[in-house]
């Protein structure tokens, strides 16, 4: 006697919005799936693979482990050269972190940051993501200026948080860019911010950053929030969670003592965090080490 078994196939009713960043020959599409992450066995389509970006700084980082600095040793003080090198390492996009603009660092004025972003954006053949400084007030001033100076380049700019989203979103929309909406590990507050932003901003231009804690420091929280975001969007058609997700994880990984104390361990730390968050549904991950990028791409069969 043979027993017939037919695996159940899910068909979903919701879809993640497809967002394009960059312009002309350097564009990247993310999201667009109407199935849960990697559920190739269910009905639906996953038109875009997850993308991997590399982090570039606008100043030489003071506290990076020696093995993260190694790949960039000769270009660390020149963001344009650094960016070009990161592209050579195979990044699908770059994420430029304006660390020097922080009032606690060099407090670089918004105009200078904006010019620097422009020169990096123009020098590279891939789309550019920009993360402004942690300071909410300064970040708003910087991003508004960046949006203006890089008019029409369709950069992905952020983070916009509940304290400063209005002024940032206005400039991002006016000058033709996309927006990163960031909340701290709370799916209800994440949705809340999306609702507020989308009162005056098209949801088709929003990418969610729910924050990406690393292995051993809350990775499971980040995982479950991304997982639930996809579930509410794809299964329950929640209009305000159907945005692609960015996992900005390089910085959280390489802050840990585990990553700093040992080269291989650091690589694994970042790699495991990246793989986990991509499985949870992140559409793009920002990594710090080119070798992690290579490993993760190999694992997922990405070009």
């Amino acid at each position: 006697m043979t027993i017939q078994y037919k695996a159940p196939i899910e068909a979903y009713t919701g879809a993640v919005r497809e967002i394009t960043i960059g312009t002309g020959s350097k564009t990247l599409k993310m999201g667009g799936e109407n199935a849960l992450p990697f559920h190739f066995f269910d009905q639906g389509a996953i038109p875009n693979p997850p993308h991997l970006a590399l982090e570039v700084w606008d100043m030489p980082p003071g506290d990076w482990a020696q093995w993260v600095l190694e790949p960039y040793q000769d270009v660390i003080a020149d963001p344009v050269a650094w960016a070009k090198k990161a592209v050579e390492y195979g990044a699908d996009a770059l994420s430029l972190h304006l660390a020097s603009a922080d009032p606690g660092a060099a407090d670089t004025p918004p105009e200078a940051s904006a010019e620097m972003v422009k020169s990096v954006a123009e020098a590279i053949p891939v789309p550019l993501i920009v993360y402004g400084p942690d300071d909410e007030k300064k970040n708003a001033a910087v991003l508004v200026k960046v949006a203006e100076v890089c008019q029409g380049q369709n950069l992905l700019l952020g983070p916009a948080v509940k304290e400063n989203y209005e002024v940032i979103a206005k400039a991002v929309l006016e000058h033709g860019h996309c927006l990163i909406a960031q909340t701290s590990l709370d799916i209800n507050l994440m949705k809340e911010l999306n609702i507020k932003i989308c009162k005056s901003f098209p949801p088709e231009r929003v990418v969610i950053d729910p924050e990406s804690p690393t292995l051993g420091y809350g990775l499971e929280y980040g995982f479950s929030i991304m997982e639930r975001t996809k579930q509410t969007g794809v299964i329950f058609k929640d209009n305000m969670t159907q945005m692609p997700i960015i996992a900005n994880l390089g910085s959280t990984c390489w802050k840990t003592k585990e990553a700093k104390e040992n080269r291989k361990q650091g690589m694994l730390w970042e790699g495991i965090t990246a793989v986990s968050l991509l499985l949870a549904g992140a559409n793009i991950a920002v990594l710090r080490h080119p070798e992690t990028l290579r490993h993760v791409k190999t694992l997922f069969g990405l070009k």
Binding site: I187, N188, L189, M190, K191, E192, I195, K196, R228, T232, F236, D238, M240, T241
Partner: peptide, 8 residues
């Protein structure tokens, strides 16, 4: 439980 809660 059909819609995700948010303050808005």
């Amino acid at each position: 439980g059909e819609t995700l809660y948010s303050h808005s």
